[in-house]
Design a binder for these strands. Structure first.
Lengths: 148, 148
DNA sequence: TTGCTTGCAAATGATTTGCACTGCT
DNA sequence: AGCAGTGCAAATCATTTGCAAGCAA
């Protein structure tokens, strides 16, 4: 059930922060809680909006820390605002449907087989450039229901 | 040979601009030429740097126009600068190897079969969200040779 | 001579940072 | 106590924009 998942997320975040010498402060807890409950990438503004106790600059500063220690990932879309989501250490690997109209993002996953052949092809392509791959990102760009 | 390719690119750009009521000015020609000859996504700064006659604000302004008419695509990476490349109407569909160190980008292509199963999966995933897909982007994030 | 373009300088706005204060540990 | 964290206000800096001059149809 949800509370169990949350607890394990909390523990992971706490240890990722702790190992790097950071505290799991109240503000950080609230940011993680917001990202977790919303379940999709949020802009700084959206995070602040969703929780009265939060302040712009503190959220910006904490997102940087949370990214450093591997709790969140910064996404840059064509929208003017950066968005943040929990890393795939915390939630499962997935991809994005990005709305070109409003910038909204929905998550989705690929069949394991497709994901595999993708990884294989990426590794192959990268080796030509002597490029070492850490990660990949795949986004579909289109128009969401509300914008159609 | 190269000059033939260039000529057809020029014609395409000219008609894309012309159809939208824009001129294929000298500055625009130079920007397209730079993107074409470099063969990888460039930042505004890199474009200006590569051609003394170009001015920052004009390049910014023209890249917006060129994007509007479908000649270039704006890429947002985690680097602090946006990058631009010719659209796949002008050059062939491809993907990116993005260096997390220096932000440099190399192009690569996937086998047609992989690209196909990818498209199929994307369409399937999108239909669940009633999301209409225009395009997709796939990037591999890693470290390039020079940064290793 | 109309109106798209351009260069220069000034404005914009998301994000970052300085600083004094709070609150863990 | 000592130092990470925070809120507020001011600073940054990539990008945008106003404006007067340039250039093509």
């Amino acid at each position: 059930m949800a509370s169990e998942i949350d607890r394990s997320v909390d523990e992971q975040v706490a240890s990722l922060l702790g190992d790097a010498g950071f505290r799991y402060s109240t503000v950080r807890r609230r940011i993680v809680a917001t990202l977790l409950s919303t379940g999709k990438p949020l802009t700084n503004y959206q995070i602040v909006e969703s929780d009265d106790s939060l302040v712009q600059s503190s959220v910006y500063r904490n997102l940087v820390v949370l990214e450093q220690v591997g709790v969140v990932t910064r996404l840059t879309t064509d929208s003017e605002f950066a968005r943040y989501e929990l890393t795939d250490r915390i939630i499962e690997h997935h991809h994005h449907l990005i709305c070109g109209g409003c910038g909204d993002i929905a998550d989705f996953s690929l069949p394991a087989s497709v994901e595999q052949s993708l990884n294989l092809s990426l590794r192959k392509a990268a080796s030509k450039f002597k490029f070492s791959i850490d990660d990949h990102r795949l986004d579909a760009i289109g128009i969401c229901v509300s914008c159609q």
